[in-house]
Design a protein around this nucleic acid. Structure first.
Length: 222
DNA sequence: CGCACGATTTGCT
DNA sequence: GCAAATCGTGCGA
């Protein structure tokens, strides 16, 4: 079924596990790709989750997180990657669900084209940046309404670029949990077991605990 | 104003 | 297993 806005106007820790198995479709001018979500992470709001982008309050980058639920929060990281979240909780509260992995179930040829011919099926959307790439999610779509549907057209009747739909699974999945991947500091500890994934699914990304980056050697003045 | 580092991926060893 | 790639953001000075 298609979720209502109210579905997302709840804490991310409640929404996240219920998104497992959901089918997210993104249609662009190139075509449509659908992913079945197999791994997500919940990030809570200002002052309550040290791993969340919203933790230190509203900023230019995270402004969308403080906006209405059910919208796309896309951000750029490591100087090259885009990751996609679904905003939870109504304004002025901020929370989000990071889409970490899924299986491409439709539009495979287009996903393959975006990810590269040598990429195997299970790896097409296995990892947050890979998932964003497979779906064709660009930073320019940050803030897009995921509940707008695919039927939006412009005045010429042409499809509007960057349209989404979400379909929740008829039968809920049993979610396993773990600490969040790649989150350093307190936010990545077992105190925040907000990574949810489908058990025994090949498209779930391998769990890699966050590692403190080796400190770059600073210049010593001799 | 400067610098460290990130909700990562990839390729080489 | 490990390091490079690559740049916006946040924080300290």
């Amino acid at each position: 079924m298609t979720p209502t806005r109210a579905f997302f106007e709840r804490p991310a820790t409640e929404v996240a596990p219920e998104l497992l198995g959901a089918r997210l479709t993104h249609r662009t001018a190139e075509g449509a790709v659908t992913v079945r979500l197999t791994e997500v992470e919940a990030y809570q709001g200002q002052g309550e989750d040290p791993g969340s982008h919203a933790h230190r309050g509203p900023r230019v980058r995270n402004a969308v997180m403080f906006g209405p639920a059910g919208h796309l929060y896309a951000y750029f990281t490591y100087g090259m990657h885009t990751c996609a979240n679904i905003v939870c909780l109504p304004p002025p509260l901020a929370a989000g669900v990071l889409l970490r992995a899924g299986e491409v179930v439709a539009g495979e040829a287009l996903a393959q084209q975006r990810r590269g011919a040598a990429v195997r099926h299970r790896d097409l959307a296995r990892g947050p940046a890979r998932l964003a790439t497979a779906l064709g999610i660009a930073l320019t779509e940050n803030g897009a309404d995921l509940l707008g549907g695919l039927d939006m057209t412009d005045t010429e009747g042409a499809p509007i670029d960057g349209a989404f739909t979400i379909e929740l699974p008829v039968t809920p999945f049993a979610a396993a949990t773990s600490p969040r991947t790649g989150v350093s500091g307190a936010g990545g500890s077992a105190d925040f077991p907000w990574r949810y994934f489908v058990v025994d699914d090949a498209t779930v990304s391998p769990y890699r605990p966050a590692v403190a980056r080796t400190r770059r050697v600073t210049h010593s003045r001799g």
